[in-house]
Amino acid sequence: MAEILSLFNFEVHITASGRGGDEALARCAAFSEVQGLEANIEVRELREGGYNLGVRRLVAKTSHPNLVLKRGVTLDRSFWAWVERCLDGTFPLPYVSGSVLQFPPGQDRDAAEPARYRFTNGIVTKVKAADLQATSTTNVAIEELHIAHEGLTRVAP
């Protein structure tokens, strides 16, 4: 398994949220591209009386776009069980928390300390399997996986 996963620079590790419905589900998958590791902070402008230097800018709510994981593979059947549970809508929905690990390219994974991003209360909103071709030798099984979540933090190594 380590040989296949070492071809990808990103891993996604899933942990149970404790809300129920996510026991024995997804644990690990590897991807070659991750998008959505960002936070957007809404700014509100306030014209304050007596303050003539300009408009005050106040910080409002923070939002996070979906995580988009591309060109991935997993050998864990429970990962697909989690995706299927998200898509079929049975209650309770399998919200999970997890980490996205970014490994330095070309280094031994056991020796390298990955960058970690932690997301909370994530659920699959879109999955796209790779196109199947008889002559293809690709190991990619998941073309795209979108995870909507409620928060993202960078975890110091």
Rank of each mutant, 00 (worst) to 15 (best):
E33W: 06
L53T: 00
E143R: 13
Q35A: 13
E143T: 02
E11T: 15
L46W: 10
A29T: 11
W82V: 03
C86G: 03
T74V: 03
A129M: 13
L152F: 12
N40Q: 14
N66E: 11
E144C: 02
V68M: 05
F119G: 01
T135P: 00
R118N: 07
L46N: 12
L87T: 00
L132H: 11
R56D: 01
G54R: 08
N40A: 06
I123V: 09
K70R: 10
E3R: 14
G50W: 15
A130E: 14
S136P: 14
H146F: 10
F8D: 08
V127F: 14
P92I: 00
I4S: 12
R118F: 02
G122D: 00
G54C: 06
L67Q: 01
E11K: 07
R154W: 08
R116F: 04
E84T: 14
V55K: 13
V127E: 02
G72M: 03
D76S: 05
A129F: 12
G98T: 02
K128V: 08
A39E: 04
H64D: 01
A134G: 07
N52F: 09
Y117V: 03
N121L: 04
P157Y: 07
E48T: 15
L69I: 00
E23S: 09
S99C: 07
R71V: 02
V68H: 10
E84C: 13
R56A: 05
L132V: 04
Y51I: 12
G36S: 05
K70L: 03
N121A: 04
R47G: 03
R57I: 04
F91L: 15
N139F: 12
W80Q: 15
